[in-house]
């Protein structure tokens, strides 16, 4: 599997394609979609699309383990007539939405579709193989000293992954970008080991906070301004400095 496109720059989204076999341009195909990497706290989430001519579906079923199948995107000139999608969400809602989007195609969205439809199993394998390879050869964008690459499977319950996360936390930057910051395991470590960050778009209550605890003991003055600044200064975030 050729991941060179991802290895060149793994900081953003990346789309990998393999060439479309001639038969898939001529014959009706069946197409499966699955994902890998929803659980792990490390590495990318990979979606794979796999398609197969209807006439060769029996071969795919016979293969059982469909190794070396293609990773593809939908906008290439293939001829899918049936699409199978694996989901953990609400199958009916997604199926309806996809069916509307692709009226000429028979869409099936199902939980555990990877176990039910061979073409989805194949997509599942593609996704898993791509993800495992990406994680194994991860090129860290950061210039980290004493980087330990023994990060385990990347699953939150893997002790190796857990101790790697604790070791590589930085109080300001958090983790290398290899880590999914929003995952609960990562967040829990950040809350304990890293400094708090308040984003510009967080709600005002979050930013104001209840005030310092000492404000209950000492007169710190009212927290509201008696006289609002002119709009010119408000719009520019300017205030006069009374202390340095």
């Amino acid at each position: 599997m050729d991941l060179s496109e991802l290895e060149k720059d793994n900081t953003g989204r990346c789309r990998l394609k393999s060439p479309v076999p001639a038969v898939c341009r001529k014959e009706p195909c069946v197409l499966g979609v699955d994902e890998a990497g929803r659980g792990p706290v490390l590495g990318p989430m990979v979606y794979a699309i796999c398609y197969c001519p209807l006439s060769r579906l029996a071969d795919l079923e016979a293969l059982k383990v469909a190794g070396g199948v293609v990773v593809k995107v939908l906008d290439t000139p293939t001829w899918p007539t049936m699409v199978f999608v694996d989901t953990v969400g609400l199958p009916d809602t997604y199926q309806e939405r996809l069916q509307q989007r692709f009226p000429g195609i028979e869409v099936t969205v199902k939980a555990k579709a990877d176990a039910l439809f061979p073409v989805v199993s194949a997509a599942s394998i593609c996704a898993k193989v791509a993800r495992d390879q990406a994680v194994k050869n991860w090129q860290f964008v950061e210039e980290l000293q004493d980087l330990d690459v023994d990060y385990g499977s990347g699953y939150p319950n893997d002790p190796k992954t857990k101790s790697w996360l604790k070791k590589h936390v930085d109080p300001v930057f958090g983790f290398p970008q290899f880590v999914r910051f929003s995952w609960r395991t990562a967040q829990a470590i950040l809350e304990k080991e890293a400094e708090a960050v308040t984003w510009e778009d967080s709600s005002p209550e979050e930013q104001e906070g209840p005030g310092r605890i000492t404000s209950y003991f000492f007169q710190e003055g009212p927290r509201t301004r008696p006289r609002p600044l002119h709009r010119y200064f408000q719009e520019r975030g300017l205030e006069s400095a009374t202390t340095l």
Partner: peptide
């Protein structure tokens, strides 16, 4: 940055941030 970090101290900008800019 569009955020406030509740600490004032040196940070490894050259190792974590600069190389990640695209």
């Amino acid at each position: 940055l569009p955020c406030e970090i509740s600490v004032n101290r040196p940070a490894p900008v050259e190792r974590f941030f600069t190389p990640a800019i695209r």
